[in-house]
Design a protein around this nucleic acid. Structure first.
Length: 212
DNA sequence: AGCACGATTAACT
DNA sequence: GTTAATCGTGCTC
């Protein structure tokens, strides 16, 4: 029997951030455009940012207009602007009032490759969404989605369930880009990614819709 | 009002 | 390996 993919609901995100981060790997990030067309890809890399104690987390300096979404309910988006040109997509985790989120750092394109390539100025498949700012370009995600409820039925950005990825296919290590952050936060192994060989296998399962 | 910085990327040498 | 791009944000004056 064929099961239609189901959208992850709030209970998925209302758990420990490391668990959510780990389990987001292999799920499908979906973006619907204004005509209902799908751009999608499998989450292949993600990082956890957990609470005000975590000196690598934007929440550590307290709540501001920019990072307020992190204190919101699980399943909301936290989208912020950085380096004068880049947007970053996070999913808020844990109970409302506790600031934590998972940064989506990489996606393997599956649907809407043409739209992605247009938005990414004709770059090769491998460079379409293999970075936190790149995937926001490819999926056209910006401040419009900050504080947006991704679990609501009308959301144009959401995550669809997929089978769990086995532990053997997953690597973890220190988070990226935290050079000035003091230990132990700088070295916490809160970055998770799927081994490239297994990504290849998963994408084949998805039957990618267009020729590279 | 001014200023330093950034959970990055692309284009260099 | 290095570095410019580019600007919203948060902090200081």
């Amino acid at each position: 029997m064929v099961r239609l993919p189901t959208r992850l609901d709030r209970s998925f995100f209302d758990r420990g951030t490391l668990l959510v981060c780990r389990e987001l790997l292999g799920k499908s990030l979906v973006r619907l455009d204004d005509r209902g067309r799908r751009v999608s890809g499998l989450v292949i890399e993600a990082e956890a940012y957990i609470g005000m104690e975590d000196l690598g987390c934007h929440a550590h300096a307290g709540r501001t207009a920019r990072n307020a979404s992190m204190w919101g309910p699980p399943g909301d988006a936290y989208v912020y602007f950085t380096y004068g040109m880049h947007w970053m997509l996070n999913f808020v985790t844990e109970r409302e009032g506790f600031p934590a989120a998972v940064l989506i750092r990489g996606v393997a394109p599956v649907e809407g490759l043409r739209a992605m390539r247009r938005r990414r100025k004709g770059r090769p498949l491998a460079d379409l969404a293999n970075g936190p700012a790149k995937l926001c370009q490819a999926f056209r995600i910006d401040r419009h989605f900050d504080g947006h409820d991704l679990c609501q039925g009308t959301s144009r950005v959401f995550v669809e369930d997929r089978p769990p990825v086995p532990d053997e296919a997953i690597r973890s290590g220190p988070r990226v880009g935290l050079d000035p952050v003091p230990e132990p936060w700088r070295s916490m192994p809160w970055r998770y990614r799927i081994h490239p060989e297994h990504v290849r296998y998963l994408v084949i399962q998805e039957e990618r819709d267009e020729i590279a």
